[in-house]
Design a protein around this nucleic acid. Structure first.
Lengths: 147, 147
DNA sequence: GGAATTCTCCCCACTTTTCCCCACATAACC
DNA sequence: GGTTATGTGGGGAAAAGTGGGGAGAATTCC
């Protein structure tokens, strides 16, 4: 499994393209064939799953009980925003308008590696997100990971 | 497991490179392949985990439930600052700008061995840290390690 | 239905950064 | 005292990031 980490601030050009950092590209599983599935993040950002990881997600969805109304809704919401994109010769992807609007992405994007996915944030939106977090990292670590 | 100890004061060159003390290099597990993952320390310093140690950390993260908002935030905060670096032919690593800014690293860095990781401090910042510590080492030992 | 326009994708070119290698100085060791 | 290992500095090749032009497909408009 590809494990992404690190951050980078890259510019979004007039055509809506962003480069994926070389370090993350090299962490990609060859199976992913330079293809990502983009979708809405839970926070105000875009999630980019490499193709091989997305397959696993899809399997999870199909294993849900779709007789349950909430499950149906969740899957619908996730899939309706999902879009497949590929790296161009320069290692960039182009962001679909609907998603970049949702994340409020302007001229500068923040690319963050987060384990099995890459997150794409607008720089200012990410700062807002940080300011919203009231709990400090030390207490959080204690709470989430145990003592 | 590699166990680092000792300290050394090394200079940071114009390209942001610092040497890792030969003693610590030789304490490295061959599995680490001369590669470290650097990340933000809780104090104002950089943590450097050898690759084999970092793998263990990552396994912990991936076992967390990422449907939980706090867990997502924690993983994001930790991983976004994580960066992989390798020793060059001269036994140096180059410090990413984001991390050396955070730790306030100038021309002189203090390298400290701390069990499973190496800590990289700015010399002046470390002195400040020492001055902030009000409790003396003896009482601290008593408090932390028991009688 | 055909022409014009827009959009998408692929390719080329330039700039900056990164990485690798070589060279020297100092210190440790035999 | 000579030799080896360690720390420091810098030059140059290669890769990464950025921007833009142009062919082809899709869409719109008349």
């Amino acid at each position: 499994m590809a494990r992404f980490k690190g951050q980078a601030e890259y510019s979004v050009d007039a055509k809506g393209r962003v480069a994926i950092p070389a370090k993350m590209r090299s962490a990609l599983n060859p199976d992913a064939q330079g293809t990502f599935t983009l979708t809405k993040g839970f926070e105000k950002c875009i999630y980019a799953y490499p193709q091989d990881q997305w397959k696993i997600k899809e399997d999870e969805f199909s294993s849900l009980n779709l007789n349950n109304r909430n499950a149906r809704h969740l899957v619908r919401m996730i899939l309706m925003w999902a879009e497949e994109v590929s790296l161009d010769g320069q290692g960039r992807i182009s962001l679909p308008k609907s998603l970049s609007d949702y994340a409020g992405i302007g001229e500068k994007a923040l690319i963050i590696g987060a384990m099995d996915r890459i997150e794409i944030w607008d720089q200012a939106a990410f700062e807002d997100y940080l300011n919203e977090q009231t709990i400090d990292q030390e207490s959080l670590a204690e709470q989430v990971m145990g003592s």
